[in-house]
């Protein structure tokens, strides 16, 4: 059975929701504190949302020096599956596992609402079995979700099918309406929307669970 390690930094606050929804998707989850260095037993690592190290300086900037991060880099470089949700996406860009950066929303407001996103690529552990063009209703909850990347890197992302999710209606100013991307080997994915918050019909949508069900197939 798929064992997923959910990374918890001081300030992470979505770990229990992620753990519960991964369990619901059929996997097993285990919370791992940010000083953990042995990740060998895990089938995937999920960096949950929140405010790692208070988001001081920039979101994710301090988190990259937590001991777990160099282990996650090794885990990813060895082909391991890594998912960064919201603050986790910000951490992955800060550490360099994903390109670009998440700057403040262009509205300069915190945005918390359901948004429609479109699956733009199957080149990620979350979208392997989801048809391109599928629309999903999944909430966002962020102040710095404005994905920013230079035009050269954007072209590389577009040409290699690494733009995994796009907002149907751009809520935050993200370049090319990008909501999530993967790395060049397709085993690391980061997204601003929170799949775990769309994991039960009582929450308004189960579309996030579809993504997590893909994850646990690995």
């Amino acid at each position: 059975m798929h064992l997923s390690g959910i990374v918890v930094f001081p300030g992470t606050n979505c770990e229990f929701d992620v753990a519960e929804s991964i369990d619901k998707a059929g996997g097993i989850s285990q919370l791992i504190w940010h000083d953990t260095t042995d990740l060998s037993k895990f089938d995937s690592i999920v960096i949950a949302g929140g405010f790692a190290h208070g988001d001081y300086l920039r979101p994710g900037a301090i988190a990259k020096f937590s001991p777990v991060m160099s282990s996650i880099e090794r885990f990813a470089n060895d082909g391991g599956t890594v998912v960064g949700i919201c603050n986790g996406f910000q951490v992955l860009t800060e550490v360099g596992l994903l390109p670009g950066a998440l700057q403040k929303n262009d509205s300069l407001t915190f945005i918390c609402k359901n948004v429609e996103i479109v699956v733009s690529s199957n080149f990620s552990p979350l979208t392997k079995n989801i048809e391109i063009g599928t629309e999903l209703l999944i909430p966002i909850n962020h102040f710095s979700g404005n994905f920013t990347v230079d035009s050269e890197t954007l072209k590389v992302l577009e040409d290699s099918g690494r733009v995994v999710f796009r907002y149907k209606s751009n809520p935050n100013g993200s370049t090319a309406s990008i909501a999530g991307i993967s790395n060049e080997t397709g085993n690391v994915v980061g997204l601003m929307p929170h799949p775990e918050r769309a994991s039960d019909i009582l929450l308004g949508s189960e579309d996030g669970l579809r993504l997590l069900k893909n994850l646990i197939l690995i």
Partner: peptide
């Protein structure tokens, strides 16, 4: 390494 993000 820390204070500035070279992407932005």
């Amino acid at each position: 390494r820390l204070l500035a993000n070279p992407v932005l």
